[in-house]
Design a protein around this nucleic acid. Structure first.
Lengths: 340, 340
DNA sequence: GTGAAAGCGCTAACAG
DNA sequence: CTGTTAGCGCTTTCAC
């Protein structure tokens, strides 16, 4: 089982290495009976081609990397990333790629990881999650000229490929929904102001208000970092301004906000209506169930892999752009049903 | 930057390939000034060794795989796995290994993944999560003779290395705690009966009862699968038997149970006390905060990598066994504070 | 302390 | 349709 080479099975079948290589790689131009005999011996012996040798000779590793920068603070405490990862892993399975996972925890990690990711011949391409403004890692990756797909709109989008959901539109829809329900003091708990995701969702909030000629009240905007805790504290800061509805830029923040509202002795949606973003599985189980913007995170991850393999197979220019749609899921927390 | 070979920088420095290789790999027996000159050129040119070539020549890939079998239903919906993964990834960074992630979703995936994982020269070792009885994958992995560490006690433990927490002891402690608080009808929501984790935690429950000469009431035992939903339904089945306390074998199930208890109009811990298992970040934020068994999941993942690298560097025999301790975290849900 | 040379196991022209 | 022949870029004895 171990140490079996292409040569060995070639000898057993009585053909040349090349022929065996051809059948292993599914190339045409091999006589059917020969192919069959080769396959038999491969089966019998349990031969597997040596990946390193294959990579070295073909200059293709059939492996892609997923890099999650350290500025993604909420790594795996936010279910978003696990779901994304799962979608990506699934797509890799289907397209016969192996997934390398690079979690950048510290500045040190970044130094260690970068060479591994950009080293020629190791990865065919990389997927990287956008983080905060000024994140060096993405720029370095872009410069390394490896096929690269950025997950989320990057700050410097010139010439790079990325995939994102339509955050502005999604937030616009969510807030418009609240406006249609008649709420007067709609607050928002934003994502980090130094992340495109945070910025875009806030932009959607502004647009929806502007469209109805509402002026923006600064005391109704509180910044969070997508985490439960940040939502909790942001809501506490918002409460004195007496919002009658809140759009939170993530479900986790909405859940934190719920906790703060409840602790203040107020009811949802009676006193404060709430809309989240993500539609995590938990969102349907909160009390009351959370109205939220659904993104197909897993599908999103799969699409990201699709774009990357396109880049790998067909060249990195022109840059590809994919913007995915979202859907507003109306549950109890926005008060839509109560008001009907 | 691209296509730079060892040879190229050897030429630039005016030494042989071997010397440069020695410097790159930190071997001794290189004159200090030569080493410095080589390092300079490497720095200047941004040279990175080709991973495939290195793997091929050295028979070491510096890469390990993490395999999560498809029988781990709750993949990434249970925060347990993300935390575990994070710990593993972190340890990989530190010890200069690259982590390959293999999520087995379907039977098909399994067929695709197995060769990649067991293929010689691709991975130096693999970490695999235990799943259910009869999971073929683990047996196949064991037979492939690659350095292997099983995460969680495997069903067939002969000759294999594994790492686990002391589930029996942990559950025993949790239930003993409830017994000491004077509860009379202590129920349990178990993990899957075909998983060692489920079995061991149930065993701890039995032992604690037996030690106090309590007979086991079958109507106080309900099986779940570690998920929130399964905890919810299990609790609904338990409720008619009027338990005054419940030990759930996972926090997610405890959270589901809470929901069921609340929906039944009962209070926690007044009517039903509750203890969970895992100490997920969420456990401290439930209402009331959940008493639970803490496992240092991240630390656990890091230790798993430690064991694996030991196997890789020092041979796979004798099999290594690591059993990690747990700690009972007392919060409100068990009623300890209320009763004082 | 350093260089020459022989692979590691495979792919991919190129002949035939 | 099949075999021969070069490499892919690095590590690693073995001489010197």
């Amino acid at each position: 089982m171990a140490g079996l080479r292409l040569e060995d099975i070639a000898k057993q079948v009585g053909v040349s290495r090349s022929t065996v290589s051809r059948v292993v790689n599914g190339h045409p131009h091999v006589r059917e009976d020969v192919r069959k005999r080769v396959l038999e011996v491969i089966q019998k012996t349990g031969y597997h081609p040596n990946a390193a040798a294959r990579t070295l000779a073909s200059q293709r590793s059939q492996m892609i990397g997923l890099v999650l920068p350290r500025t993604v603070t909420s790594f795996f405490t936010d279910p978003y990333f696990p779901h994304l990862t799962q979608g990506i892993a699934q797509a890799c399975n289907q397209s016969d790629y192996t997934l390398g996972l690079f979690l950048v925890g510290t500045k040190d990690d970044e130094e260690k990881i970068f060479p591994r990711v950009s080293r020629r011949g190791f990865l065919d391409g990389v997927l990287v999650q956008t983080g905060q403004i000024g994140d060096q890692l993405i720029d370095r990756l872009v410069n390394s000229n490896i096929p690269l797909v950025i997950i989320g709109r990057p700050f410097h989008a010139d010439g790079v490929s990325y995939i994102d959901v339509d955050n502005v539109d999604a937030a616009y829809n969510a807030v418009s929904h609240l406006l249609r329900l008649g709420y007067q003091r709609i607050a928002t708990i934003t994502g980090p102001a130094n992340s495109t995701t945070g910025i875009d969702r806030q932009e959607g909030y502004f647009r929806a208000l502007a469209e109805r000629d509402r002026t923006v009240d600064e005391s109704l905007v509180a910044e969070g970092d997508f985490s439960e805790a940040s939502g909790y504290y942001a809501m506490q800061r918002l409460l004195p301004a007496k919002p009658d509805a809140v759009f939170a830029a993530s479900d986790m923040m909405a859940i934190g906000a719920m906790r703060a509202v409840r602790e203040a002795g107020l009811s949802i949606p009676g006193d404060v209506a709430l809309v989240g973003f993500d539609d995590l599985p938990r969102a349907a189980l909160t009390d009351p169930p959370l109205t939220t913007v659904r993104q197909q995170v897993q599908q999103f991850g799969m699409s990201a892999v699709g774009v990357l393999t396109d880049l790998i197979e067909n060249g990195i220019t022109p840059p590809r752009r994919v913007i995915m749609a979202t859907e507003l899921i109306v549950r109890e927390s926005c008060g839509a049903y109560r008001r009907q």
